[in-house]
Every structure is written in C-alpha cells, then in structure tokens.
C-alpha cells in the first residue's frame, strides 16, 4: 500500500511540472503574439503609401509592369508559410488542408513550392509537391534581409520561367487572438483589389488626387520601383500574420494543456488521499487484529 501512494505522488509531481512548463509557454507566446501584431501594424504606413502609388499608376494611368500582367502557363508556385516548431494546436494542419485543397482544385497545374518553416517542408512532402527552396532558418520576427531573400527567390523563379502562371501563398490570416483562418491567397501577378484586401489598405478611389503630381524621371520608372515594394510589404505582412496566428494558436493549445494538467492533478490528489486513507485503515486493522490475537 505504501508503494501505491509513492507512485501516485511521483505522478503528481510530474503532472505539476508539465503544468508549469505549459503555463510558461503560454505566457511567452502571449507576449510573442503581441509583438508580432505590433510589428505588423508598424508596416501599415509603408503599405498604405506604396499601395496608393501603385493604384494611381496602374489603374488611373494605365501603366503596367511584368509582375502585373496575367500569364498563361501550366505551372504554379505555392509559397507555404508554417511554423518551425510544433506544439501549436491545429495551426500547421489547417495550412496543410488548404494546400491539399489547392492541389486538388488545380489538377491541370504542375505545382512547385517554396517553403518557410520546417513544418511547411513536411506539408509539401505530404502533398507530393516539389520543393524548390526552403527557408527554415529565419529569425524570430523576420529581418528585412530575410524577407528580401524570400522575395528574390519567388520573383527569380517567377520571371525565370514563362510557364509559371501564378504565385500563391498558403498562410494563416490573423483576425483576432481567438480566431485565425488558414487560406491560399494569390501574390503574383499582382492584383490591385486582392492586394488591397490582403494589406487591409483602402483604395483612395480618387483619380484627381495624383493628377497634379510631377513624376521624375517618368511614371514608368517610378512604377518599376513601386511594384517590388508592394510585393515586399505584402509578403512581410503575410509572414507576420502567420506568425501572430502561430503564437496565438500556441497560446490556446498551451492553455488547454495547463487546464488538463490541473484537472489531472485534482484527480490524482483524490486518488492519493484515498490510497493514504486505505493504508492507515489497514494498519489500524492490523494492530487491532494483532492485539485481539494476543488476548
């Protein structure tokens, strides 16, 4: 009997420790999520301004750029953004489902992938997608250089092969800390309405606003600079939204784990008390039995 109380005690200790770890992970993820959301918000000014320029030059002045034109072809490039680490609930699974759906819905396309995150690599393998390049060493909140190297990988692939009809991104849209939504969104060719939706920018809708502007040396050259900038912020925001979703998904998973650890601890405590009581009762019974036999 003494043996049983001991094993229960050991079990309680380990459950308690797990609870402490999950609690700590939850708190770390809360702060990381807040930071990702703040970083995303910090890039809004740039997104809004560069988008306005793009809209003005492309929609109102009818200028174009190779990245803006639709293409014919039988290939598609998918950029999969998922996490490096696990323990974040259904986050990676949801991205994976979206990728599978995309593959199923486009049987006529040969799909290649560029992946961000170790889990994304697995998603690509699971769906039998050929991985062109893989970025798994990115730092916590993505530096400008890292985003740029990813963007270069994408644009080089896209402009290097005429057969790429489009580039899409599988990411997780961050709605609030409780709700996020994995989805596949087009990145290239750049579509003004789609971009506005992804960036959350508002279309100025005012053609007159830019009418008085002087463009130097000419409008086309400005557009050539604006297009990569817009792509860059779009990509950065998609990455950060995915990051925020990953962390808040982890917060939820860890909160559940902590709650479960608490419940389990309660149950174990009850069992422990019962076992201890049983041991005492038995001991008394033994003593009483023993003294009765002596008499």
């Amino acid at each position: 009997m003494a043996m049983q109380t001991k094993t229960i005690k050991a079990k309680m200790k380990s459950v308690q420790n797990i609870g402490k770890i999950t609690k700590a992970m939850e708190m770390i993820s809360v702060s990381k999520m807040k930071k990702s959301v703040a970083k995303r918000a910090a890039s809004d000014v740039f997104a809004q301004r560069s988008f306005e320029l793009l809209e003005n030059l492309h929609v109102h002045k009818n200028l174009t750029h190779p990245y803006l034109e639709t293409r014919k072809g039988n290939k598609a490039l998918i950029v999969i953004i998922a996490s490096n680490k696990g323990l974040c609930g259904g986050y990676n699974m949801n991205v994976s489902k979206q990728v599978s759906t995309f593959v199923k819905e486009n049987p006529e396309l040969t799909i290649d992938a560029i992946v961000v995150g170790k889990q994304a690599e697995r998603i690509a393998h699971r769906n039998n997608i050929n991985v062109i390049s893989s970025f798994t060493e990115f730092s916590d909140y993505y530096t400008a250089g890292e985003v740029r190297s990813l963007l270069h990988a994408i644009t080089d692939t896209y402009s290097g092969n005429e057969n790429y009809q489009q580039v899409v991104v599988a990411y997780t849209q961050f709605i609030s800390s409780l709700s996020f939504n994995a989805m596949v969104t087009p990145l290239m060719p750049l579509n003004v309405e789609e971009t506005a939706r992804t960036l959350g920018t508002e279309s100025s809708g005012d053609a007159q606003k830019f009418a008085l502007y002087t463009f130097e040396p000419n409008e086309q050259e400005v557009l050539d600079k604006v297009v990569p900038s817009v792509l860059m912020t779009t990509l950065y925001q998609l990455l950060l939204e995915s990051l925020a979703s990953e962390h808040s998904s982890r917060v939820m998973a860890m909160r559940n784990a902590s709650d479960n650890a608490g419940e389990m601890l309660e149950e174990l405590r009850l069992n422990y008390n019962r076992a201890r009581q049983a041991a005492i009762t038995q001991e008394i019974a033994e003593i009483v039995g023993g003294s009765a036999a002596m008499n």
Binding site: A42, A144, P217
Partner: peptide
Amino acid sequence: LTITTPLRTVYENDVDQLTVTTSA
C-alpha cells in the same frame, strides 16, 4: 516628413527642409 520602410516607420517629424539623392 515620414521616413518609412516595409518593417517600420524610422522617422516622423515636422522639419524645415530635406535634402535627398535622387537618380538625377
């Protein structure tokens, strides 16, 4: 004046003048 990058806004203030290097 606002100086902004895809990652963050670097500088924002009211200023008297600004000199930059353009392609011309």
